[in-house]
């Protein structure tokens, strides 16, 4: 039941914006809790890398006295990857097109992360 609810949060997030290509909720140990990824994406790889990036982001923010981590954003030639905490033990990973309106994506992703955190 909880799994389905988390899955529906991800489908709503992906369906609500044409800019969002894929998303997943991952435990801080890198295990996938729920995902709405394209068939070309390896769930285990996405999960482990997203959790690793979030951990590194947190540690870097702490080491450099930037306070609690809010998000990690990675920008590449083909778009963005956004990582946001979904509660203390999970990460929402959002894969975004390069033409995206980031303000809207941030807003939608933050709402989805809160919704997912409430379910975990």
């Amino acid at each position: 039941m909880r799994e389905e609810l988390i899955q529906s949060v991800l489908f709503d997030l992906n369906g609500g914006s044409a800019d969002i290509e894929a998303s997943a909720i991952i435990s801080t140990d890198g295990l996938t809790i729920g995902s709405a990824l394209s068939s070309t994406m390896d769930e285990a790889r996405v999960g482990a890398m997203a959790a690793a990036m979030l951990s590194l982001g947190e540690r870097t923010a702490t080491e450099l006295a930037r306070g609690d981590l809010e998000q990690v954003m990675i920008k590449g030639d083909n778009g963005y990857i956004l990582l946001i905490h979904a509660g203390p033990e999970a990460v929402l990973s959002v894969i975004v097109r390069k033409e995206a309106k980031l303000g809207l994506v941030f807003l939608d992703a933050s709402r989805a992360a809160k919704a997912a955190a409430g379910l975990l």
Partner: peptide, 17 residues
């Protein structure tokens, strides 16, 4: 300790294909 990654996460990264 340096990265903040848990040991299970590091193990998951090591085990990636």
């Amino acid at each position: 300790k340096a990265t903040g990654m848990s040991l299970p996460l590091i193990e998951a990264l090591v085990m990636l294909k």
